[in-house]
Nucleic acid binder design. Structure first.
Length: 299
DNA sequence: CACTTGACCTGTCCGC
DNA sequence: TGCGGACAGGTCAAGT
């Protein structure tokens, strides 16, 4: 999915789009995508207002007045897209509101009618709808008490966010050295080490740091660890500036693509020239994941 | 403990 | 045009 920058981008969009709105209705199109331990939560939340939108690692959280929250994990293909108004597209492609007034041509992102066949759950806010789409159905949204989010096993195990302002290098070193016998790529993908990197940004980070993905953590020098640490943070910050990476499915809260891959160092660039040394980027498998790296500067 | 494989699902692309 | 296989942003569980 969506890794840290993509979820962060969605969070920022939703802060603009849905805070202060009251939820009117929940529509579940695929039961397996909607987790709700206590059925009464679905009634309790109706009429309550969104008070905040948060992100922890790759998890997005929408908090409501009354102590309930929606918690999303987008996994590989999840999307969270807000569409304002109850409008629709006329046959001639002109956007119209509920009363039929023409609003002009839609932007490109609005050409797609929602809900569609990938919509698993959607939330009606009266003057807009929030769609949870997920082609592969790996993702989920959970309606639960805000106070219980920290008790989710997955949340408990998470390491600190890789982009947290107060994350110090010493903390990173202490945590990554717990995986001394692992390959560095595996250690960085493990969300219990430090959270937020996925397959794209691990490859990007290791190229910028000039470290081969197969190296064992215990064999890395402290200057290499420092390069990995600072590269990861630079890359995450840059990707957030560019609204994330849209490889196939990812879209932001308004349905728009992110543009980080326009300037990616190695991801999806096998066969092309390394931006640092000009050697040809190679693709191998590490831990079953496609892995792009430069055989010369990451020797 | 760490690695490997498979499972969860759907869709796209490539070669024959 | 159809079909089989490989592959895709993530996690989890079982076996070695």
């Amino acid at each position: 999915m969506p890794e840290l920058p993509e979820v962060e981008t969605i969070k920022r969009g939703l802060l603009r789009l849905i805070v202060g709105k009251k939820i009117k209705k929940i529509e579940v199109e695929n039961a397996g995508s909607f987790l709700c331990l206590d059925a009464k939560f679905s009634r309790e939340i109706i009429g309550h207002e969104v008070v905040g939108v948060r992100r922890r690692a790759k998890v997005l959280i929408i908090d409501f007045v009354g102590g309930l929250s929606l918690v999303f994990h987008l996994k590989m293909t999840g999307q969270i897209i807000f569409r304002s108004g109850g409008g629709s597209l006329r046959n001639d492609g002109i956007l119209v509101d509920e009363k039929g007034f023409a609003g002009g041509h839609p932007t490109k992102s609005m050409e797609r009618e929602l809900p569609d066949k990938s919509t698993r759950v959607w939330f009606d806010f009266g003057d807009g709808k929030l769609f949870f789409n997920d082609e592969r159905k790996f993702g989920w949204v959970r309606l639960m008490k805000t106070a219980a989010i920290g008790e989710i096993a997955f949340m408990k195990k998470l390491g600190p966010d890789f982009n947290a302002e107060d994350l110090r290098f010493e903390i990173f070193v202490e945590r990554i050295l717990r995986h001394g016998k692992s390959k560095i790529k595996n250690a960085l993908l493990d969300q219990t080490t430090v959270a937020g990197l996925g397959n794209i940004y691990v490859d990007e980070t290791l190229n910028m740091a000039r470290v081969n993905p197969l190296r064992l953590v215990s064999d890395l020098s402290s200057s290499e660890l420092l390069a990995i640490f600072s590269s990861a943070r630079k890359i995450l910050a840059r990707s957030i500036e560019l609204n994330g990476s849209s490889w196939r499915n990812y879209r932001d809260a308004s349905g728009e693509r992110g543009s980080y891959l326009d300037e990616a160092l190695v991801y999806a660039r096998a066969g092309q020239a390394c931006r640092f040394c000009g050697a040809i980027i190679e693709k191998i498998k590490v831990n079953g994941r496609g892995t792009s790296f430069c055989p010369k500067c990451q020797a």
